Lab assay of single mutants.
Amino acid sequence: QRITLKDYAMRFGQTKTAKDLGVYQSAINKAIHAGRKIFLTINADGSVYAEEVKDGEVKPFPS
């Protein structure tokens, strides 16, 4: 399943989102408010992988 960072954070909370991605909650808040195009893939085992689309390139998040 693929979902935006904002939607994932709204569904699970910023604290869990940060923990799942290995970053601080403040980084999640800042990324959402900056309007960054970050998409999360939720794997069947429950693990989460995030990618950011920037300038036409897709890069892992966090980099």
Rank of each mutant, 00 (worst) to 15 (best):
I38C: 01
I38H: 00
P62Y: 04
I42G: 02
N43P: 04
T15I: 13
K54C: 12
I3W: 15
I42Q: 06
F39Y: 13
I32N: 02
N43E: 10
A31I: 07
K16C: 04
S63A: 12
P60R: 11
P62I: 05
K54E: 13
A44G: 12
H33P: 02
I38N: 00
K16S: 04
K54Y: 13
A27D: 15
S63R: 12
H33F: 11
S26C: 12
E57L: 13
K19T: 09
G35D: 13
E51M: 08
F12E: 06
K19P: 00
N29T: 14
Y8T: 00
A18H: 02
F39A: 03
A9C: 11
R36E: 04
T17I: 05
K59T: 13
G13H: 01
K37C: 11
K30I: 10
M10G: 09
Y24C: 15
A18E: 03
V23N: 02
D45M: 05
L21I: 08
R11E: 11
A18F: 02
K37F: 11
Q14M: 15
A27E: 15
A34G: 09
P60M: 06
Y24P: 15
D45S: 06
K30S: 14
E52D: 03
I42E: 04
D7A: 10
P62R: 04
S47T: 14
D20K: 07
D45A: 05
P60E: 06
A27P: 02
N43R: 12
L21V: 05
F61K: 02
T4H: 09
D45K: 04
N29H: 14
A50T: 02
K19S: 11
H33Q: 15
V48I: 12
V58R: 08
G46S: 06
K19R: 11
R2T: 10
T15P: 12
I32M: 07
T41F: 11
K30C: 11
Q1W: 10
K54V: 15
I38K: 00
S47R: 08
T15L: 15
D55T: 05
Y24N: 15
A34H: 10
L21D: 00
K54F: 14
E51Q: 09
D55A: 10
I42D: 01
D45P: 03
K37I: 12
F39W: 13
G35A: 08
V48N: 02
D55I: 05
L5W: 01
N43Y: 10
L40Y: 00
V53W: 14
V53T: 08
I3S: 05
F12G: 01
P60W: 05
L5D: 01
G35I: 03
R2K: 13
N29Q: 14
G35M: 08
G46L: 07
F61S: 02
Q14D: 10
Y8S: 00
A18W: 02
S63C: 10
P62D: 06
Y49I: 12
V23L: 10
T15R: 14
F12H: 12
A27M: 13
G22K: 09
N29S: 14
T15E: 15
I42V: 11
T41A: 06
A31S: 05
D55L: 08
I3Q: 06
K6C: 07
G13R: 01
K19W: 09
P60T: 07
A44Y: 11
K30H: 14
G56N: 10
K30D: 15
I28Y: 01
G22H: 08
